[in-house]
């Protein structure tokens, strides 16, 4: 990982921080009616395009930035995100062609699993289980709808930007 400088690592980290900025702003305007939870946006592209160490660094740092104010133990969010990134990284060859359906499928699956894990670990704010489930369900539905539109975009964007700079970025071959 340290033998030569990989420009993709700071590039994908910068893109992820921009996504944190955008999603925070959108959620701030949509509050209190719905909250978009899109951890897959920060995980899928680094897991596909980076080597193992680069993926660990980018996803780990983004997890701390995105959830620095979470009531969960610091590190728990990074733990869950890294597990999801590890799983996607192991299966990255299946998405070599970067087809829309495949990318959307893996993004939706990762998003759903991460949110459900948080739903189990985090104490709800609702007055009872029904209110908690209703609120969580509404947020998950809205998040899935938005992810259906933006999943492929968040994977093609780094390819497009790097292509415009004359650099090729494809699914990572080795670690």
């Amino acid at each position: 990982m340290f033998r030569k400088f990989d420009i993709r690592i700071p590039f994908l980290l910068a893109l992820n921080l921009l996504y944190v900025f955008i999603i925070s702003t959108v959620n701030s305007e949509l509050a209190p009616y719905v909250c978009l939870m899109l951890p897959a946006v920060f995980i899928v592209a680094p897991a596909l395009f980076l080597g193992f160490g680069g993926m660990l660094f980018v996803v780990g740092v983004t997890a701390f930035f995105a959830e620095a104010t979470t009531p969960v133990r610091t590190g728990m969010t990074a733990f869950v995100w890294l597990l999801a990134a590890f799983w996607i990284h192991g299966w990255r060859y299946r998405f070599k062609t970067l087809d829309s359906l495949g990318i959307m499928g893996v993004s939706q699956a990762a998003n759903l699993v991460i949110i459900l894990v948080f739903a189990v670990f985090m104490k709800g704010d609702g007055a009872g289980f029904m209110q908690y489930a209703l609120r969580l369900g509404a947020d998950m539905l809205a998040s899935a709808a938005v992810l259906a539109f933006c999943a492929k975009f968040t994977v093609s964007l780094p390819v497009s930007i790097m292509g415009a700079l004359g650099l090729d970025i494809t699914v990572s071959e080795g670690d």
């Binding site: 701030s28 948080f118 609702g126 609120r135 969580l136 947020d139």
Partner: peptide, 12 residues
Amino acid sequence: RRDINAWWQHLI
């Protein structure tokens, strides 16, 4: 920023 979801309701 407003941070309102199923787990907490915060303003920054």
